[in-house]
Amino acid sequence: KQVQVGDEKYTFDTPEEARKFAEKVAKEKNLKVTEKNGNFHVE
């Protein structure tokens, strides 16, 4: 599963790991997490 933050992409083995990372980054940057096709976008 992938997490996209701006132009950066991070790959994780499980959706749970990806979601945790996305939520942590979103909180730090005051952004929101959206899920698209099983991948997460922080925007």
Rank of each mutant, 00 (worst) to 15 (best):
Y10R: 03
K9M: 14
Q2M: 14
V5N: 02
D7N: 13
N39Q: 12
K1D: 05
V42L: 14
Q2P: 03
A22W: 04
D13Q: 10
N37R: 03
K27D: 08
K27V: 09
G6L: 08
Q4M: 15
E43I: 13
E28L: 08
V3G: 01
K20P: 00
A18W: 00
F21C: 04
N39E: 12
P15N: 10
A26Y: 02
K1G: 14
N30D: 10
V42Q: 02
F40W: 12
V3H: 01
V3I: 02
K20T: 12
T34D: 05
E23P: 00
E8S: 11
K20V: 11
R19P: 00
F21P: 00
F40P: 04
F12P: 01
R19T: 03
K24A: 12
T14K: 05
K27E: 11
Y10C: 05
K24I: 08
Q4E: 08
T14C: 05
Q2T: 15
H41L: 14
A26P: 00
N30L: 06
E28R: 06
E8T: 13
H41V: 15
K20H: 11
K29Y: 14
F12K: 00
A18G: 01
E35S: 07
A22M: 04
K9F: 14
N37T: 04
K24W: 12
F12T: 00
V33I: 11
A26R: 01
N39D: 09
E17S: 05
D13N: 12
N30K: 08
K9D: 05
K27I: 11
R19A: 06
V5K: 02
P15S: 13
V33M: 07
E17K: 04
V25E: 06
Y10M: 04
Y10H: 06
H41W: 14
K29G: 11
E16W: 07
N30I: 03
F40T: 03
E35Y: 14
E35M: 14
E43K: 08
V33Q: 02
Y10A: 02
K32N: 09
K32H: 11
K27W: 10
A22N: 00
V25T: 07
P15I: 15
K36W: 11
D13A: 12
K20Y: 11
F40H: 03
N37P: 00
V33E: 04
K24S: 10
G38A: 02
H41M: 12
K27A: 13
F21W: 08
G6E: 06
K1A: 15
K9I: 15
E35R: 06
Q4A: 07
K1L: 13
V3S: 01
T14N: 10
V25M: 10
N37K: 05
V3C: 01
R19Q: 08
E43S: 13
A22G: 00
A26I: 03
E17W: 00
G6Q: 06
V33C: 07
V3L: 01
E17N: 05
E8N: 12
K36Y: 12
K32S: 11
T11Q: 11
K29W: 13
N37H: 08
K36N: 09
T11Y: 15
N37F: 08
K9Q: 12
A18K: 01
A22S: 03
V3T: 02
K24C: 07
N37Y: 07
K1R: 13
E16A: 08
K9C: 13
V42W: 02
G6D: 07
V25S: 04
F21M: 01
V25I: 14
E16L: 06
G6C: 07
E35I: 15
N39P: 03
V25R: 04
T11C: 12
K20L: 13
D13W: 06
E8K: 14
N37I: 02
V3P: 01
